[in-house]
Design a protein around this nucleic acid. Sequence first.
DNA 1: CGCATATCAGTAGGACTGAAATCA
DNA 2: CTGATTTCAGTCGTACTGATATGC
Lengths: 132, 132
Amino acid sequence: MPTWILNQASTLSHRLLSDALAREGSRGYDYRVLSVLHEFGPSSQASLGRRAQMDRSDVVATVNALVARGFTTRYRDPADHRRNVIAMTASGRKHYRRLEGIMVAVQDRLLRSLEQGERQTLMDLLRRIVES
Amino acid sequence: MPTWILNQASTLSHRLLSDALAREGSRGYDYRVLSVLHEFGPSSQASLGRRAQMDRSDVVATVNALVARGFTTRYRDPADHRRNVIAMTASGRKHYRRLEGIMVAVQDRLLRSLEQGERQTLMDLLRRIVES
DNA sequence: CGCATATCAGTAGGACTGAAATCA
DNA sequence: CTGATTTCAGTCGTACTGATATGC
């Protein structure tokens, strides 16, 4: 069944990913938050959640951990006191680059049995499912 | 990223599936165990686990629930006292048929934006990833 | 003995909920 | 007031581990 094979592929992907990220002491949520910060710069937690498609409460926990490790800062937004501004530190950027490398390697490991064109096709089909 | 879009598709699939199964008071594990029993007949818990790709301890919990609802029986295997024999009851078969219908409907819902040939292609690509 | 099986207790990460407090 | 934001304390289903007991 499609749902079953999809689940198996996703489980494999998740295992490869979290094993690899764990070697840097990180998990999926860490990478997702850092990559949004990399792409969009300093952001409120709510916007991190929207862009990384994470729940608000998971953003809190993830940012707690990132701040504790010195990878991001968190301060109240002077222009809107409801918001926190989360920003990457230099060491956070370094950590993000390491995670980026890991991510690229994992993509290749996951898709190694497919040709370039097939990888494109797969992405296209999955995207259409998600966007339906 | 492939891992990301794959994860999104799988999350959508999982949501459709568990919402639909929940309407019959079941979860994914229930269906997986019942479908193995349907295909292979009475089985030990270890073989259920191997065939449904479930952990031994999750099989225990799932069979507990299925027995409690009268969908399967569990008795010691007279030929090998280490084993339990798990078998579907009549009401279990009826329940399984309901779940089957739900599963088929969910596949169609999930893949509704793809043509028949594209569904085949997708399955083929995913299978090759899993089998790599 | 080694190995397979079943059970229990517990862990881990991800997705999510409800309620409370703060403030634009 | 309404609505957005942050935080806390949980739940849920899935996947998995370690230890124990039993019996081939």
